[in-house]
Amino acid sequence: MKAVFFDNLAKGGNKMEFKFNWEGNKERVEQLNSFMKEKRYKKGALMMILQEAQDLFGYLPIEIQKMISKELNIPLSEIYGVATFYSQFSLIPKGENVIGVCLGTACYVKGGQDILAKIEEILGITIAETTPDRKFSIDATRCLGSCGLAPVMMINDEIYGRLTVDDVEEILNKYR
């Protein structure tokens, strides 16, 4: 059964072997549980809870989705549907540093694609993938709203603007 799962993931990401570590994530699971208790009666709470889980774990582990399904009494098929619809949710672990290269129009006409290519070249991964050491992952990001600084990329919450291909290596090194 596992094969089908990874086969599906391979469409959007690299094949990664990983297992959710309950023991190591004990505190985070508790945090999520108390968040759920607080929000579960809010209308439309699922999105908020998935966002919180994504923040806490860096991805949405199957085990956590099952836990949310049970707690909120929402069918797992629906949760999986929501988790795979929105691009900010990930089913594979994201890296410590999430790089978003803006592929909005202003950045595109000013060479955003070249910046992305350079990052991909340096890290050896492409969009929606994570480096094997889990240091970096790349997100396809649509317009970050910093068109005045095009081309732009965002690492975690930090924005880097007016980039040239030559800047990339140095910036990435800051996060290694």
Partner: peptide
Amino acid sequence: VTPFDLGLATS
């Protein structure tokens, strides 16, 4: 799909 695309038998 079934959840996580694991196939109907697992759902």
